[in-house]
Amino acid sequence: MKLDSTTRFWLASFAVGSVMTAFAIVGMTVGLQLQKPAIEIPVSATASTWSETMCAATGRVDEEIEGLFTLDSLTGDLQCAVLNGRTTKFAGLFRTNVLQDMGADASKKPSYMILTGAASFPGQGGNTRPGDCVVYVIDSTTGRFVVYGVPWQRTLAARGAPQQGALILLDSGTARNVMLREP
């Protein structure tokens, strides 16, 4: 069967168009795979909240591991529960009591607030060093505050082993320069 010139023209046009479309699809696919974002922005979020009897805050203890800090305002017990990134179970528990460190009198009903901050402590020759965040505890009735670190052991965390200990008192201070009289 012999094709006339019009049919040959349309078949040739279709073939050329198909080849060009295939090249365009391959080019876009390769280009999208090679394209990288111009700027990578690290994101980290922390949160804190409090009520009359309990305060809570979150903070990044290690690369992808976050801790939940809770403070019982009635007893002064502060703890940090750390999730294990591999097992999604709590694998770290660190505790202290803030009453003595703040010089607070529990009978005077302290009013606490807590928040976390990022920290990067230099290596101290051993495996244990404070985690990548600190927790601040403030007594709004006296203006006193303390800051604690988490004695995080990275080799235990890498193995998924549980760990526990006392939160480390790093420093203390006061935000109020005048003593208030009680009513």
Rank of each mutant, 00 (worst) to 15 (best):
Asp77Asn: 15
Pro122Val: 08
Arg144Phe: 00
Thr96Leu: 02
Gln100Ala: 14
Met102Gln: 06
Gly76Thr: 04
Gly59Gln: 08
Val137Phe: 04
Ala118Ser: 14
Val98Asn: 03
Phe121Ala: 11
Ser120Arg: 10
Gly85Thr: 05
Val135Leu: 06
Gly125Ile: 12
Val61His: 02
Phe121Trp: 10
Lys89Thr: 11
Glu64Lys: 15
Gly143Gln: 07
Gly92Asp: 00
Leu115Ser: 14
Asp72Trp: 03
Arg60Val: 12
Ser73Thr: 10
Pro130Gly: 06
Phe94Trp: 00
Gly85His: 03
Gly67Ile: 01
Asp101Asn: 15
Gly85Ser: 14
Glu64Ser: 14
Gly67Asn: 02
Tyr136Arg: 12
Met102Val: 03
Thr88Leu: 15
Lys108His: 12
Ser111Lys: 13
Asn127Gly: 08
Leu83Thr: 11
Leu78Trp: 03
Ala104Tyr: 00
Lys109Cys: 12
Gly117Gln: 14
Ala81Cys: 09
Ile65Thr: 15
Trp152Thr: 00
Arg144Ser: 07
Leu115Gln: 09
Asn127Pro: 00
Ala157Gly: 13
Phe121Gln: 09
Leu83Arg: 06
Gly149Lys: 02
Phe90Thr: 13
Arg60Asp: 05
Val82Pro: 04
Tyr148Thr: 03
Thr155Tyr: 07
Pro151Asn: 05
Thr75Ser: 15
Arg154Ala: 15
Leu71Pro: 08
Asp139His: 06
Ile114Trp: 01
Glu63Asn: 13
Asp139Pro: 04
Lys108Ser: 14
Leu74Val: 09
Gln79Ile: 10
Arg129Val: 11
Cys133Ser: 12
Val146Arg: 00
Gly125Trp: 06
Gly149Met: 02
Arg95Leu: 10
Arg86Ile: 06
Glu63Leu: 12
Thr70Gln: 09
Leu99Ala: 15
Ser111His: 09
Lys109Leu: 14
Thr142Cys: 04
Asn84Met: 05
Val134Met: 12
Arg154Leu: 11
Val150Cys: 02
Ala158Asp: 14
Ser120Asn: 14
Thr128Lys: 08
Thr141Ser: 14
Leu93Phe: 09
Thr88Met: 14
Asn84Ala: 10
Phe145His: 11
Arg159Gly: 11
Glu66Arg: 05
Trp152Asp: 01
Thr116Phe: 00
Gly125Pro: 11
Arg86Glu: 12
Ala119Ile: 03
Val137Met: 01
